[in-house]
Design a protein around this nucleic acid. Structure first.
Lengths: 282, 282
DNA sequence: GAATCATAAC
DNA sequence: GAATCATAAC
């Protein structure tokens, strides 16, 4: 959120752009040796925390790096903001330091990332199904389109320096959701007057139109401060973080239940928990 | 935690003490009419939030006020710091504004509160069993001493003005546990060198000896800043709130499982939740 | 970005 | 006491 405003002017060639952008920091340690991938990266800077996965995916355990493709690295988000939350990291060193709105002006690049994102979306959808229905084979199951429960997109104002695409289950239930921006950045803002006005920008809505207000820092800041609304029922919670958080927990239970029933299977009552029961006698 | 240090000097008679103590505030609205119970109470002061339950228990729904006895009111804690968390509010107007260490110098009063606390402990233990084992009758159940999972005591430095005793399940798992003092105030500090050095003081350890360091504000402040340790396994977490919080969540699962098994019954797999599964494939 | 700590205003 | 907001230091 503290990243500087990016220019909306047409960019120079990607290679020169990477060093001209405000996102290229003076103290970055661009290596000049023949390393496989050269990207700006300051090891101690937490905003550069995604770089190691791009530079050397194989240095990380498979529990974190889910897969490498020729063009992308798939990882788990270290602080998942939903039941399943993965990131797609494009490997292209010409793109990795660009703001997503800039990077995805390149329609060829966008098409490639979309293809990779489809693959990651499949993995995330499968994991989501497993978490909700359990590992067992579901006799007569398959009634749910699990991909429809997964959102794919970028933040209008990313806080991590390297280009990444979120692939995340849409319920937003996680104990890592601790403050306003965590909801604001991931949940859509139902707004009858303006369809696209959300901080989370689906990959399908890119490239962003030149006149989209989200090019402006001011509009992005505004989106992060809007009243909370529930992604599922649209109910509003004004400025109450505790209120929306409690409600999201309740919707989580209902959402799981509905999916489990719709799937037509499930094992061992995986989604039930007595702890969630609302009534009690003491 | 911001309450002033209380005097350790012998108190005057209880009736005069109530107005001499530093806890009696100048703007309190002690009623002078023939109201059933007269206690200092400023309606808008959040630290006086327990007073309404003492003054008029019947004005509150049974979901909040669990029971009245001639000497106490039992309520649910509005911000439970564990699976089950109730409060015992002594009704005696001569005691309600005293610090618990002062109030429980009176051994007759202490004996009465202990008797009431035993009753509330039974209710809490029953509710705990229900939450972990479910509502159904448990064939062959009864292997667990549920009362042993419930702690009864006071805070060395209460933040609410009216005398109250916590009756709380000991696992400390709740989404209302959000900061250091929430753990520090409720979890014991396993300390091989000093048995009683905890901010939570069991009713069984009262009256406090005159030389107990917890009479001093300095010692109470120290207890709230000690490193985190797990109530169940004793593992230490230094100053990491997130670390202890995550661990407590894991111990919660194990604790439930162990109790459910020990009870020798349980229904509908009440304590299981696929969401708690540790491994995953994406 | 996470996490600890401090601070109004209730 | 809860809750929102702001702020270092990583």
């Amino acid at each position: 959120m503290t990243r500087e405003e990016i220019s909306t002017a047409p960019t120079a060639s990607p290679r020169t752009k990477a060093v001209k952008t405000s996102r290229y920091r003076a103290n970055s340690t661009t290596t000049t040796c023949a390393a496989p991938i050269q990207i700006p990266y300051t090891p101690r800077d937490p905003r550069d925390g995604l770089a190691p996965y791009i530079i050397s995916p194989s240095a990380h355990p498979p529990s974190i790096v889910l897969k490498e493709t020729p063009t992308s690295v798939f990882i788990r988000d270290a602080f998942p903001k939903a039941l399943v939350h993965a990131l797609l990291l494009p490997r292209d060193p010409e793109k990795t330091m660009l703001h997503p709105f800039e990077a995805f002006k390149d329609e060829g690049f966008l098409a490639q990332v979309r293809a990779d994102a489809e693959e990651l979306k499949g993995l995330v959808a499968r994991e989501l199904r497993r978490k909700i229905c359990g590992r067992g084979t579901v006799a007569g199951g398959g009634g749910v389109n699990w991909g429809a429960e997964v959102r794919v997109g970028v933040h209008a104002g990313p806080s991590m320096n390297h280009l990444h695409v979120h692939v995340i289950s849409r319920e937003g239930f996680s104990d890592r959701v601790k403050k306003r921006v965590h909801y604001s950045a991931l949940l859509p803002h139902p707004d009858p007057n303006s369809f696209n006005t959300a901080f989370f920008v689906p990959l399908d809505e890119l490239p962003l139109r030149g006149d989209d207000p989200r090019w402006e820092h001011h509009e992005r800041a505004r989106l992060l401060k809007m009243d909370y609304t529930c992604w599922r029922c649209g109910r509003g919670f004004k400025n109450s973080f505790v209120g929306i958080k409690q409600h999201i927990a309740e919707e989580f239970v209902e959402w799981k239940k509905a999916l489990l029933e719709a799937e037509g299977g499930g094992d061992r009552g995986a989604a039930s928990s007595q702890f969630d029961a609302s009534s009690s006698s003491v």
